[in-house]
Design a protein around this nucleic acid. Structure first.
Lengths: 215, 215
DNA sequence: TTGCCGTATGACCGGGTGGTCATAGGATGA
DNA sequence: TCATCCTATGACCACCCGGTCATACGGCAA
């Protein structure tokens, strides 16, 4: 947790440090991100960083949490149930479109999301990803539930299993158009909006639309 | 690519270096892994490592490739089509069981797989993961195709989309029982064999078994 | 014996790391 | 005016990094 000094800090200075840290940690991850670089680029003495946070991990955790809340806040307005007349899969795919658009337009948030998603160290990964997973679940579960209520998903659909798969899959999907090597063959990287939307829909369809021949 | 010196090297020495490197890179990833540590633990001068490989990346790439081939070789005997009488989903789930078992019993291979799967740097990620993705596709695509031929998957199933989702999902699934914070809520970590098998089956079912109510 | 070649070695290089701390500046209240 | 508190600062610490290179060793051919 940030120290009180951080909270009392002049807004402009805090934003400058925060944005610089997002860029640095986003580009090089936790262990690769350099406090020296952040201090220099933000125009702040390195010692100051330690007036704001206990240590590097405390700093990174705050940056990660701030970022995930920011992303969630941007997505929240679109997380309502499908409007009447819009099929669930269509609604869901639109949501993924919005998410991909957001990540394409917000490199700072995208970088930090990638850095937390790909963190290797188990302790740091858990510390940083579990809150994010909770946010994802909080946003997506009601969607699935409303689809069941509307009779579009099977009443006995395994919501927990669906959810955990989506939580694994969606961040990669959202990042893939802007970050190379994440799409595992679906060639999402650097495709234009219409094309990536079409390809993402194919992937989403495989999740929800029956692939099996009924036995 | 390794230098000739590496190829001509005494087998025992090469194995010692290789195993130590797998442990180190597996535990700390590419940028976090230390050549000093590898040299010390393998009982070899640091300079020797540079007689074998051009630089750190060359070394890491070789370790990653060696590992992925080893894993693939272990899985290959089980990659045939489902035996007559065994439903496709059952066959596929058994395969995932075998994979999870393998990872549980091979910490070195598991670590390197995790390190390559979670690599943040785009250049290194691409260099190291694309060959792996090709191996995965090579193993899984015929399986899907044979399920279509057998009439168990829909004839117009989107094999490419299914494949790219599985390539994203399966490594996480295989690692999750042994590496914390990868299962995104499905609580696979440190569950015993029977339990993790049951939970993985739920997730696999969501992919292949119809979740949608036919319209 | 000599010379050669492939290999092993580890001291050494420049540079970067997270973190500390003595110092100083500025605002506030008495 | 003075004392007190909070905060900003950057030189400094011990340590680690990837990579180099002069040197030495050992086997083999002439």
């Amino acid at each position: 947790m940030p120290k009180p000094t951080w909270v009392n800090l002049d807004e402009r200075r805090r934003q400058r440090v925060l944005h610089t840290a997002m860029a640095e940690f986003g580009a090089h991850g936790y262990s690769g991100g350099s406090l020296n670089v952040i201090a220099r680029e933000a125009g702040v003495a390195k010692g100051s960083l330690f007036q704001y946070f206990d240590d590097k991990l405390d700093f990174f955790a705050h940056v990660a949490e701030h970022t995930s809340i920011e992303v969630y806040t941007a997505m929240a307005p679109h997380l309502g149930p499908a409007p009447a007349g819009t099929p669930f899969v269509e609604h869901f795919a639109n949501l993924v479109d919005i998410w991909m658009d957001y990540m394409a337009g917000h490199p700072l948030e995208r970088g930090v999301t990638a850095a937390t998603t790909m963190e290797l160290d188990p302790d740091i990964r858990r510390a940083v990803r579990e809150p994010v997973h909770r946010l994802y679940a909080q946003g997506i579960r009601p969607l699935l539930q409303s689809a069941i209520d509307a009779g579009e998903l099977a009443a006995d659909a395994d919501v927990d299993a669906l959810l955990s798969m989506l939580v694994l899959l969606l961040p990669h999907l959202a990042l893939a158009p802007s970050e190379p090597g994440l799409d595992a063959g679906l060639a999402l990287y650097r495709t234009r909006r219409a094309e990536r939307s079409r390809r993402a829909r194919r992937l989403i369809a495989t999740i929800f639309v029956p692939a099996m021949v009924p036995s």
